[in-house]
Every structure is written in structure tokens, then in C-alpha cells.
Design a protein around this nucleic acid. Structure first.
Length: 153
DNA sequence: GCCAACGTTGGC
DNA sequence: GCCAACGTTGGC
């Protein structure tokens, strides 16, 4: 069982939207970055857990957790010309992009802000701190524990 | 809205 | 295969 961090823009899809789905599966689609794609395709497995992270918004940080309930499969949005995630260079015989399915686990009592993460020595090695622009990234068991502890306030 | 970091594209 | 131009991400 492994841990991950999934970024989302709350104006597009927030932890509240995920919570509202209850135990329903949400396809984590629209990832259009090869590094992130490879992690989803090769590493993320059913039963893994993920921090949900709000980016590009007022309160940037980790806001809750989700569980992986579906392994990687072709992201349907890449084939839909109406979708903003449409990719004309992809095709069904050889799909370029994948997504995984997740479901809501928890919403944090307190958001663990990026600022706090950056000022916590135990979290200094997080990919989030070292490489800001990756939207799907690994989290160690230690980092997972520390952040969940901080979330309780 | 600005801009730094960095990934992708395309000419050669 | 190099690298400049360009586009996107994402914090501030």
C-alpha cells in the first residue's frame, strides 16, 4: 500500500465535491503531464491512499484524503472533442492519457497549508516542496502520518 | 495578473 | 539530437 498526493483546483473540483459523492467513484481525469501519467499508469494501485491538495486558489494546501478504487484506465475525456481535456493526437488503439478512480475518505479539520508544509522540517523532502509543478506525486508513509497529524490541529 | 520553473514542440 | 521559442503550472 502506497501513498500519493493528487492536486486539484477547487474551482474545478474540490474536496467538498468529492465528499458530496460519498462512496461513489470519481474518475481522476484531465491529467496531461507525462510524469504524472506514468505514476498513475505504473504505480498507483487499488487500495492506495492519496492526499487531496488544493492548488491555484486562496487557501493552498492539503485538504483531505481519498482511496484509490480503480487502477489506471484510458481517460475518456481525451477522445471527447467537446471536453477541454480533448487530445486530437491520442487515439483509442493507443491512448495517450490515463486516469484512476478514487473515492472520498476524509476531509481535514484544518487545512495543512503549503506554507506550513514548507516550514516543517519532517516534510522538507516532499516532492511538493522540491518540484512544485507535478500534479500527481508520491508521498512517504512518514509524510502521510505527519500531515494527517497536522490536520487534526 | 505577474512571472519563475519547467515541459513540449519544431526547425535545423 | 540540440536548443530556442512557446505554453502551462501554480505560488504569490
Amino acid at each position: 500500500m502506497a501513498y500519493w498526493l493528487l492536486k486539484t483546483e477547487p474551482s474545478e473540483f474540490s474536496i467538498d465535491d468529492l465528499e458530496a459523492l460519498g462512496s461513489k467513484t470519481e474518475p481522476w481525469d484531465g491529467i496531461r503531464n507525462y510524469q504524472a501519467r506514468n505514476i498513475m499508469r505504473d504505480k498507483i494501485k487499488v487500495g492506495d491512499k492519496a492526499l487531496i491538495y488544493h492548488s491555484s486558489c486562496k487557501d493552498v494546501g492539503a485538504v483531505g484524503t481519498a482511496e484509490v478504487v480503480e487502477n489506471a484506465y484510458p481517460d475518456p475525456a481525451q477522445f471527447n472533442p467537446k471536453s477541454k481535456y480533448y487530445d486530437p493526437k491520442s487515439n483509442r488503439d493507443n491512448p495517450r492519457w490515463v486516469c484512476v478512480g478514487v473515492k472520498f475518505l476524509s476531509k481535514f479539520d484544518n487545512i495543512v497549508a503549503l506554507k506550513q508544509i514548507k516550514s516543517t522540517p519532517a516534510l522538507a523532502e516532499m516532492v511538493l516542496v522540491k518540484q512544485g509543478r507535478l500534479s500527481v506525486q508520491p508521498v512517504t508513509a512518514k509524510e502521510w502520518k505527519v500531515i494527517n497529524q497536522m490536520a487534526k490541529g
